[in-house]
Amino acid sequence: MRSKWNLGSIGLKTATLFGFLFIHIPILIIIMYAFSTDEKTFQFPLPGFTTKWFGVAWERNDIWEAIILSSQVALISTFIAIFLGTLACLAVYRSQFFGKEIISFLVILPIALPGIVTGISLRSAMSLFGIPFSTWTIVIAHATFCIVTVYNNVLARLRRSSHSMVEASMDLGANPWQTFRFVILPNIATALLAGGMLSFALSFDEVIVTTFTAGQQSTVPIWMLTEFIRPRQRPVTNVVAVFVILVTTIPILVAYYLTKEDDGRKK
């Protein structure tokens, strides 16, 4: 019987631990400095512990305006992504036609490209067609990559599902809309919800694409990027960063457990 503590196992566990620490220690540092009494510099250990910066951030109107804008953009982008991503998935799934692979590639391309390339491309296109930069240009930009998360989640769910239920529904006289409503939709509901939550999290903290398409609008990430270079604003910026961590982490965790539980039921 081979020991579970052999050299390979220890090396893999050690590498996993270092990777985990490398990713999460900076997040813990940001959370820690949100409670620092020092206004200008980062010191360790902390010179003091305070929660006053949370009160300062709560009373800042510019922060609330950025949060409201980011929330509106994320919600609208998510709904657009759910609608278009689902339609694209249903069009591609189990259909054979010329250019199918090209369409699939074009759908997932925005999330594969570097954000700066997507941002420059969208800005150039909007300038070419004379579209003024506003909240809606941010929504359009975010929807391009949010669609991918919904598309991938729904497509993966459909590939794991039995198509015989759809065929049975059609054989029993149901029209395409009834089949979608009573057979397909309940089957992909958790995948839609998980994809929507991931889309919301991606949109809420997106900064690169937003920078190129926002104009004078200031979302939370852009506000943080602007304020962080001001030394006296760093504690408040760290407080907002803690808020962003919560807003983006919770939907991702919920999406993870939704897909995990569904996978468990499928087995």
Rank of each mutant, 00 (worst) to 15 (best):
T41F: 14
L75K: 00
I245W: 14
D62L: 00
F79N: 02
L202Y: 10
I10M: 09
E59D: 05
V117L: 04
L198P: 01
L21M: 15
V239G: 06
D171Y: 12
L28A: 15
R234Y: 04
A189W: 02
A241I: 07
Y93Q: 10
S161C: 06
V236F: 02
F20W: 14
V150C: 10
R123S: 03
I80P: 03
F18N: 13
F35I: 12
V166L: 08
W53A: 01
L46F: 07
V209Y: 08
N153K: 09
I116S: 04
W223C: 05
I103C: 08
Q217P: 06
F42D: 07
P176V: 03
Q72F: 00
V107G: 13
L246Y: 08
G130V: 01
A141R: 01
Y151V: 08
T51E: 02
T213F: 12
K266A: 13
K100L: 10
I252N: 11
I120V: 10
T249I: 07
V220R: 09
Q43P: 02
E59F: 00
I25F: 15
P221K: 11
R234C: 04
I120Q: 02
D171Q: 12
I68Q: 03
R157D: 07
M1L: 09
L172A: 12
T14W: 06
I76V: 09
F49Q: 00
D205R: 08
F200C: 04
I30T: 15
S95Y: 09
S71D: 00
V148P: 11
T144L: 12
G85A: 05
T237Y: 03
E261L: 12
S199T: 03
I10R: 10
I138D: 03
I252K: 09
E39L: 09
I120N: 01
A191V: 04
A168V: 08
G215F: 07
L253S: 06
R159T: 13
G195K: 01
I10A: 09
L113T: 05
I147N: 07
F20D: 14
V207A: 11
E261T: 06
P176M: 04
S77V: 01
M165Q: 13
R159N: 15
S104K: 15
H142G: 01
E101M: 09
A156M: 08
G8R: 12
T149Q: 13
F212Q: 08
I31T: 15
Q217H: 10
Q72L: 01
C89S: 15
K260I: 04
I120S: 03
V117P: 00
S9N: 15
T248P: 05
L21S: 13
S164T: 14
D38P: 10
Q43R: 10
L155Q: 13
L155C: 07
I29T: 14
P235M: 05
G196H: 03
E167N: 10
V240K: 04
T211Y: 14
F54M: 07
P26C: 15
K260A: 14
L75D: 00
D263Q: 12
G99L: 09
L202F: 11
T86Y: 06
P221V: 11
F22Y: 15
V139D: 02
H142E: 04
T137L: 04
L172N: 10
V73M: 03
Q72W: 02
L258D: 05
R60E: 03
F204V: 00
S127N: 10
V139T: 04
K266C: 02
F97H: 05
W223N: 05
A191F: 06
F200A: 06
